[in-house]
Design a protein around this nucleic acid. Structure first.
Lengths: 210, 210
DNA sequence: GTCTATAGATTGATAGAC
DNA sequence: GTCTATCAATCTATAGAC
């Protein structure tokens, strides 16, 4: 049996604590006491802390990447059907929108987006390796579609611009429930507004003359 | 006496290990054995691990932020002298160029840029708090100059675009000595090329119609 | 300033009763 | 499946000889 009330409770609490402190700084005792379960339950259900980390990441990331992939393939299909190239703006929207709207998809999903926004920058090998492996296919597809939208762009320019896109997006993900930079002009924005602001910024950057 | 061979050796090794594993995952034993000094030397020279972390960050960040501030003030001064507004592209260049060229300013400075690129996303409160405090003044100045360059931009749009800039830059900093995203088209670039690519991308994003 | 030795706390993981 | 109790390892920090 894959599901169990205790198992799910552990996953939910671990997700929240990992998002705000990192997996390395979060002890199994902190998780089990906050979840109201016994310390030994973690090892009974997951075997090791590393497996718990992997499960916390993959549980929702598989779903999110499925949404991203579907949106990207729809963009490609409708471009092919119309006999045109995909547009940079719609490719970016297909990746960014599911990501920033994901917190609305279920309780605790907001913690998950913060967690994933940190995963790529995480100095902890364990978490980063798991994350990169799960992201590789959809990132590859994302890169292909951006290349189809701008075939005139040199591959290395496209590669680094894709990195700028991922950097801006993951920073936004980390700050989605609070203002990321502590400045006087800091103003919180709703997720749909952030989608619009971010895709507008990124489209202009991608389409800039090299 | 502020300098000592042992003290500097500890700082250099800690900088490298912190950059690649994070401060939390790096034990004092790992630092002292790699540095070839005694374990107790850390507490003799710094008093506590937290102070060592602060020292590693501030040692070079004060210098880097000084360069950034000087460049930003020069941009403002030359605009005032010419009776015009600062240009978005030159403001971005004043912040980005010293950052990405900093690794050439001394041995081990490349590790520092990787470290700082991670600091803002670091889940560890200690490192992030130290970092944010040191960054606040120059970030404030950076935001002011971007606002002077584009006074028509609503403050909240400017705030979030500044976040996109910082996100893209810090991601680039993390990957300056290797390719950040594991894709087939990954190609390493020299620091001056990255400066040009990044500022071009960011200028277009900042200047996009809202 | 540098060393050995160790205190004192916390960690991930497990054994075994129920 | 859940619990108590505990092991073995690791960590930061310090005391005190040299």
């Amino acid at each position: 049996m894959a599901t169990s009330a205790t198992r799910e409770k552990i996953l939910d609490v671990a997700e929240e604590l990992f998002a705000h402190q990192g997996s390395r700084a979060t002890s199994l005792r902190a998780i089990t006491s906050a979840a109201g379960v016994n310390l030994a339950a973690v090892n009974y259900h997951f075997g090791a802390k590393e497996v718990l980390i992997e499960e916390v990441i993959s549980r929702r990331l598989v779903t999110l990447n499925g949404q991203r992939e579907q949106r990207l393939l729809e963009v490609r299909a409708s471009a092919v059907a119309a006999g045109r190239r995909p547009e940079t703006a719609e490719v970016l929207m297909a990746f960014v929108e599911p990501t920033l709207l994901f917190p609305q998809s279920g309780t605790g999903a907001g913690n998950f987006i913060t967690l994933v926004g940190r995963a790529m920058a995480d100095p902890d090998e364990t978490a980063r390796r798991i994350f990169v492996r799960l992201m590789q296919p959809v990132l590859q597809l994302f890169a292909e579609l951006l290349a189809e939208a701008q075939p005139e762009l040199a591959p290395e320019v496209l590669y680094w611009r894709l990195n700028f896109v991922i950097g801006a997006l993951s920073h936004t993900m980390r700050g989605i429930d609070r203002c990321p930079l502590p400045l006087e002009i800091a103003v919180a924005k709703s997720a749909p507004e952030l989608v619009r602001l971010l895709t507008g910024f990124l489209s202009a950057g991608m389409l800039a003359a090299p």
